[in-house]
Design a protein around this nucleic acid. Structure first.
Lengths: 245, 245
DNA sequence: CGTGGATTTGAGAGAAATCAAATCATGTGG
DNA sequence: CCACATGATTTGATTTCTCTCAAATCCACG
């Protein structure tokens, strides 16, 4: 079963706090943000390519992903999102969405109206900077994803993706004893890595046999996280998880 | 030979104006931005992975690209930049660079101190929003690049990249009669597309033979831009070139 | 005119795709 | 509570796109 409950503002504040010290007023303003809490079934489209959203989505519990569909019907997953993420902040300034935002599993999200965010952005420069920074980190992950799908052979590609997810899950307290609930199917992995699901299957068997990781029944287990990061040439710099980095 | 001269503020204002109406005060503030103009030789590293830049780089003339180098020495180009671009705006909030910024050919740039940009960002909300938007468009291009390198066969991949460049060159007035100065080598293309230069060579021959495009002696010629966009399944939505889109 | 970068050509190897089908869940409705 | 449908995982055989390795040619430039 999914996991911990966290309140909307908790998740958001924790997230932003990782990046800088907010003063009491900032926090109070964030806590006063209006929002609508919603429970979404796995597979729900939150935003579709072409939509013009009027609110942003804060992920409270569960997982989301963003994807584009190519002309010939192939899907490319662009990012996975863990609780605390605000995956469509870009809609504040990019009015027509160029991709889909989808619930990976049953998830609970909070919708915050653009209005409110635009206001907070004008009145609280520090919060504005942090939100901007969030979108820039997003961007940094995309850059890394380009390198991953473009330059690494399948096993390293998988290792890199999983290493990234592990770090991000860990940052929000969802890794325990080298394992985490992670409801990705091999099809999701294939669509994220630019591989076919049959090839993903063979790669996963290999990594399992080599004792690096095991993804089974929706739980991810690391047997040797360090060796996995080496295989994936993983350098966490691009995650910008450190405030002053 | 390279091309037109444009003044720093001209380029910047033209760029930002494409996205919204700036009032006289906004423009005045931008025009007062302090900057250092510099002439850079082809191949110059403007920022290296690991650097902590204290200024942003506005491209006035020539081309830049951003790249990451993998452990095994392969280079992945993440984006190309045309005059008017500010390719390292992200350094305003991401303090350690996760990639390199390099001059593709002899280029002239203007460096604007972070200080000045942070100030303008606090005092002129409209300009702040536009700069933020610039970084979000950046992000949108990365998303598209992921799809391109991950999902399309080599000829479509090339077609897509070239179509994007054509649109962006056109937007800043650098396409004339279906041709433009574009000093990309086949090695650059290979590094951008995740292919080898020998394969790039064969793909280019094919596209030339099929009468779609021709890149020779640093000038790009379109024989059939529309067919090229079809081949590359190019949809300009993600460029967000339209203010209200 | 020599040197190094850029482009081109050829032959062979390899990683991942494709095609096809079996097995294994899981969840729903009768 | 079983029967059936649907989705996820697994396996095998074959194909294909792109890489690798090698070498020749071209070309700009000092």
């Amino acid at each position: 079963m999914p996991n911990q409950r966290t309140s909307l503002t908790d998740a958001l504040i924790r997230k932003l706090r990782m990046n800088a010290e907010l003063d009491a007023d900032d926090i109070a303003t964030i806590e006063r943000l209006p929002f609508t809490r919603e429970q979404l079934a796995a597979g729900t489209f939150i935003v579709r390519e072409g939509d013009r959203p009027s609110r942003c989505c804060l992920l409270i519990d569960g997982f989301l992903f963003r994807a584009k569909t190519t002309e010939d019907g192939k899907r490319q997953i662009l990012s996975f999102h863990v609780p605390g993420d605000i995956p469509d902040l870009q809609s504040l300034h990019l009015h027509v969405s160029d991709h889909d935002l989808v619930a990976l599993n049953d998830a609970t999200v909070g919708f915050i109206p653009h209005d409110a965010l635009h206001t907070i952005t004008r009145t609280r420069p520090k919060v504005a900077a942090l939100l901007w920074r969030e979108t820039l980190i997003d961007s940094a992950l995309f850059r890394d994803w380009i390198v991953n799908v473009s330059r690494r052979p399948a096993p390293a590609r998988m290792a890199h993706l999983i290493s990234e997810l592990a770090r991000r899950l860990d940052a929000v307290g969802l890794m325990k004893d080298d394992q985490a609930y992670l409801p990705l199917t091999q099809v999701h992995l294939a669509d994220a890595l630019g591989l076919t699901s049959v090839h993903v299957n063979r790669v996963l068997q290999e990594l399992r046999k080599d004792g690096m990781m095991d993804l089974k029944d929706r739980v991810l287990r690391f047997s040797d996280a360090q060796r996995l990061e080496e295989l994936g040439a993983f350098d966490p710099l691009y995650l910008h998880q450190h405030p002053k980095l």
